[in-house]
């Protein structure tokens, strides 16, 4: 009888020994069917083998995305043929095409609606950095200005082979994750992205202070130039989720009050 193991590793080893040395009798009919693996491996394998993309096309790249899903390139080989139009049911957002200022609020909203674990693949030059249209007045120079991106696929548009390579890189990334450290099982790690708003130009709620400084300073200096002439190198401050307006808070309070009243609960 062995004494108490000195540490946890030893205990684990001792517990594994009977399995490793065939001391436990496995029934004959199951002999060839039992595999031992780690939780991470099986968790990641199942996730990446059924990673459903969002059915979401923006521009030219969407056509190549469709071609990738069609018979010749056959995305079904990777368990990805089920494209879901609903963000709630999909795991992967392929940003396939030019992101415009008019569209970006919708994209961020869709991203926020996707359930964790979620991934973003930026397909093509436009989604990655604005591409040939970068200078355009209605073009966002890259979706990563607003939402985090996992894999970038260059090309204009990327060929289906390139997209498949990007998807395989995404699989590799999934394979490296561990169930013990992934953010979506932890508290306070929600990655809610404030939805950009359409003003005189699109603006990010996280940058309101920065924009206000510049525009008001420009007005004060009575320069006729547009606000983009401000001094370079000003630091950018992420401000976290957007504050709700007083109106919205009042509306929610009112709804709560009505609900309490209906249920007969005390104020």
């Amino acid at each position: 009888m062995a004494s108490l193991p000195p540490d946890f590793q030893q205990l684990k080893q001792d517990q594994l020994t009977p399995f490793l040395h065939d001391e436990i009798a496995v029934p004959d009919e199951l002999q060839a069917n039992v595999l031992i693996t780690t939780v991470d491996k099986i968790y990641n394998w199942s996730r990446r083998s059924s990673m459903w993309p969002l059915l979401f096309g923006l521009a030219c790249c969407a056509i190549e995305m469709i071609a990738t899903a069609a018979s010749r390139y056959d995305l079904a080989r990777f368990g990805m043929e089920v494209m879901r139009p609903s963000p709630r049911q999909s795991d992967l957002m392929i940003v396939s095409g030019t992101v415009t200022k008019k569209m970006v609020p919708a994209i961020v909203r869709i991203y926020n609606q996707m359930a964790e674990p979620r991934y973003v693949l930026s397909m093509g030059a436009c989604a990655t950095g604005g591409g040939p249209f970068k200078e355009g007045y209605n073009v966002v120079s890259g979706i990563d200005k607003y939402i985090p991106v996992d894999v970038y696929v260059p090309g204009c548009p990327p060929t289906p082979e390139a997209l498949i390579y990007g998807l395989l890189k995404m699989h590799e990334k999934v394979d490296r994750q561990s169930v013990t450290s992934v953010p979506w099982y932890r508290k306070d790690t929600s990655q809610f992205v404030p939805v950009p708003r359409l003003g005189p130009d699109v603006f990010d709620p996280r940058q309101v202070d920065l924009i206000k400084d510049t525009t008001l300073k420009a007005a004060a200096a009575t320069t006729a130039a547009a606000a983009n002439g401000a001094s370079a190198g000003a630091t950018e401050h992420a401000r976290g989720p957007a504050q709700l307006s007083d109106k919205a808070i009042a509306r929610m309070e009112e709804a709560k009050r009505r609900w309490r009243e209906k249920k007969g609960l005390p104020e």
Binding site: E135, G199, D201, L210, A226
Partner: peptide, 25 residues
């Protein structure tokens, strides 16, 4: 890079004196 020349590093311009806080869509 153009991004480095603009404080908010985005392809946007705003008119002088515009206040985002009071903006109503």
């Amino acid at each position: 890079f153009h991004e480095d020349k603009i404080p908010w590093a985005k392809n946007t311009t705003y008119p002088a004196g515009w206040d985002p806080d009071s903006w109503q869509e």
